[in-house]
Design a protein around this nucleic acid. Structure first.
Lengths: 199, 199, 199, 199
DNA sequence: GATGAATGAGGGTTCATTCAT
DNA sequence: TATGAATGAACCCTCATTCAT
């Protein structure tokens, strides 16, 4: 049983503090002073565990993305039908754990900084690719091949757009509503079952 | 004929420079030095025409929003059917003028700073309200009342989400694709005509 | 009859505005923007009539000193006895025109800037010399020669000190009180008449 | 034995440097660059130990006032007669430690900035009140009650006025002269012993 | 492992001044 | 005579980072 030093603990504390501060400071760039104060530690400790502020932020976003992908995978790995899989992706994207005010703030902050950091871009790209891949697998079994890309792109846009709206007005919509809105649009599009005129 | 001083001209130049710099500096916070250099003016001039950096940014975002709303109104004002109106809103949102790399960068930058500024929040809220109102007028003539809000929310989320995707990867999709993706989702949802099983 | 241009008028307006602003801005260094706004003129005009801010301030203080000396001279020129003369100096120093909140503020501001400006030092020195001279003329007729300098110095210190107290708390003492306080100390010192034990 | 960190030391150094610079720069507003250079430290360190320039200046003036009151109290606390007490106040006010060119410059600078700062006003008011109180205790045992306030006010004005004259011309008078001038005026006023006509 | 001391680069802002009109 | 446009120097302050302890 490997002895877990205090290092990993501190790192997690600092990452958590970073996300908190991004939210509390209303998406303004977090300062090391704020973060370390939140974690109850000294400023210097950040450069001790991470090498720089940049790397702390990158680790933070990697953590965020990791949790996000984990949440989605949890659902898709047990999906049996295309519909199941689509539902799983949507439920994972819009899972309660991903829609806390803190997480949503962090995501928006992150998205707006993607262009400034190679590393951020990589992380974001990986997330996108993963979700797109999962959705494509399912969607292409439901509609003609030439329509697949558009629909997948549309689904992702809708989910990301709902994040944006969460971030700007957390009280407006809740997780259930967001899931319903997304699925409503999607399944009208991909499922014959949902055609109003056929009911 | 009112004599137009050099003031309004400089203000427009500085606002244009601000948007350019936001894009060029890859969404990092623009500095006055960058902006004024871009405009070929001195740093001091910004505080001369605007009172502070904050106000310059607020004016910039107001300009952005103004142009955006203008573009949408241009279309909706001549729309005759609900379908026309929905198309107009989507076309306006995703108009070429609103989807230049610069504009998209500015919007994303803006969205991520909404929480830090009262003024930003007001501007963003006004835009949202306007688009939501226009869409609601049209959508409620097409589907049951209890579904209207969800669908409107969904349409807006999709459009905003596509902006996000534009911002992260400008080469991936173009204006026409974005419009098609949005309309595809929307009209499958609100129009009996588009039901696949009925064709 | 020499035609009086607008120049001298503007100069007086600007000097008056300077004194007002020194008082209103609570003794912080006045800016040209404040002064010209107060005078209802543009900033540039100051450098037009005076060559620089420095010179405007010097002219302002010269004006202040000039008015001060004038006030004192008005009284001393008609004084017939040493006592008259001393009274005249004190009444002139502490004349209502010299004890307005604005004037007192200007004097304190001025005193604290004497060391920074050659010109200021000259003006202040001239005032000092003049008052000292007038007082000496009178005092040396009342007390032994070897005591004169000390007493003159003491009188001047008392008057200047009262200015200070005016400036810090205008409501505390008024002109009449200030005059009485000064004369009380002085005449107990220089006049046998005021000895309490002799009454 | 409490370990004294480097903090208090630096703070004292910076306060001392501030007073020096006020004097050396001839009462113009000291800049952080000047102060920190004088202390042999970087500019940033000032905001590290004090939070702002404003606070540094407030601490400096508080220190100045503290030393001043300490000096006076040293004398008054052992005064046995009213005359002793008055002498003690005068000697304390005009103590060598309070009449160095640096201290006098700092006091004049301070007095001229009292109106701009709440904190400065508080400090100055406290000093005034303390000196007035001490003098009143003594004076009211020597002269009729209705005259006490005037005389106290006069003594204070004289002492403060002498500071002014020190500041403007350090070579003109020395501590001993200043003390003598003040006491001369005061004791002629409050003591029957000093009446010239009775000798 | 953890901290406080100290720094230096860079930012926004103020302000007197110059110049063309 | 008077002004608005424009500048550049100087200032305060923030903040990530380094280093010795």
């Amino acid at each position: 049983m490997p002895k877990v030093g205090v290092g990993p603990i501190r790192r997690k504390e600092l990452i958590a503090a970073t996300i908190s501060i991004i939210h509390e400071s209303k998406l303004s760039d977090p300062t090391l002073a704020e973060i370390s104060a939140k974690a109850g530690l000294s400023t210097s400790i950040i450069n001790h565990y991470f090498q720089s502020k940049k790397k702390l932020l990158e680790h933070t976003m990697r953590e965020l993305a990791s949790s996000f992908i984990g949440e989605v995978t949890l659902g898709t790995s047990v999906a049996e039908t295309p519909t199941d899989r689509i539902n799983a992706v949507i439920d994972g994207n819009l899972a309660p754990s991903q829609c806390t005010p803190e997480a949503v703030s962090a995501w928006l902050w992150f998205w707006a900084r993607v262009p400034v950091s190679e590393e951020f871009a990589k992380i974001q790209h990986a997330c996108d690719r993963y979700i797109a891949k999962e959705l494509t697998i399912a969607v292409k079994e439901l509609i003609p091949a030439e329509d697949v890309d558009d629909v997948v792109e549309g689904i992702m846009a809708t989910m990301y757009g709902l994040y944006l709206r969460f971030a700007h007005d957390p009280k407006k919509i809740d997780v259930e509503t967001a899931r319903r809105i997304t699925k409503d649009l999607v399944f009208y599009r991909v499922n014959e079952n949902h055609c109003a005129s056929c009911d």
